[in-house]
Amino acid sequence: MAESFSNSSNAIDNMDNEKLRKALLIRERPKKANAITNTLTFGWRALLKIKYIPEQLLDVTVFPIMFLLMFTYLFGGAIAGSTGDYLQFLLPGILVMTVVTITMYTGMELNNDIRKGIFDRFRSLPIWRPSVLVGALFVDAVRYTIASAIMITLGLILGFRPEGGVVGVLLGVGLLVLFSFSLSWIWTTLGLILRSEKSLMGVSMMVLFPLTFVSNVFVDPRTLPSWLVGFVDVNPISLVVTAVRGLMHGVATSEQIAWVLIASLVITVIFAPLTMFLYKNKK
């Protein structure tokens, strides 16, 4: 594909001086774009990346489906007595796990941009600086929503019957997307600090793997040894799973929801400014 035009005949590759002159003669500068336009433009960029690299969506489709099928049919009987019952319990948990795992993408993209020259270009433009990040994070929110939709559809086919109804499911997804949005700021912070994409991936796996597995995603913590229960209960992933599960089945307490909101707020308040600070002062 590359060769098709890089080896093209000279005629195509020749610059036309008159055209060049005309193009360079134009010097008017448009009115400065506002913060929202900037953010939308970066959002558009992130969407284009999904268009060109659809493999990105693999993580939000194939893996969660695999997990869901595997756990439901492999352990459903053993853990909950029947696969149907287990699915009611497991689906919200797997949903949280999937979405939380893909929060690290923005950090990785950012890390990628920094190592290439494009980061410098963005920083030398007269734009609202956070827009680079905020735009990308919004697209991530789109990604989280796509992943959620796929999972829930599959769940419904397999027999997932949320007692909270449509409203409960939507609220659950909304809360999850909100939490994930705030969590992304941690990865953008790390994306600015760590040297390579790989090390970011390593660190995030190291954090997320135990957090998602030693939680109430797969099993009811009451079946666990007591020393583990202590950890599972304060694990923020557990808090999110409890609230999302509660919302979908219509049994969430306002206390459970409040915990997630507080956790999101705390994470954002710490890591969003930290990201911006590092971003501005990056060498």
């Binding site: 500068r29 448009p30 009115k31 400065k32 774009a33 336009t37 900037n38 433009t41 558009w44 960029r45 284009l48 990346k49 060109y52 690299i53 290439k116 020259g117 494009i118 410098d120 270009r121 963005f122 030398s124 433009l125 007269p126 734009i127």
Partner: peptide, 27 residues
């Protein structure tokens, strides 16, 4: 404007999209 030592365009996007993006960012 700056053209850095290493390609400061987004290699995943097309040439057109790169320029449109910069144009949009500039207003």
């Amino acid at each position: 404007s700056l053209t850095g030592q290493f390609a400061s365009v987004d290699e995943d996007l097309s040439g057109l999209e790169n320029l449109v993006m910069i144009g949009r960012l500039l207003g």
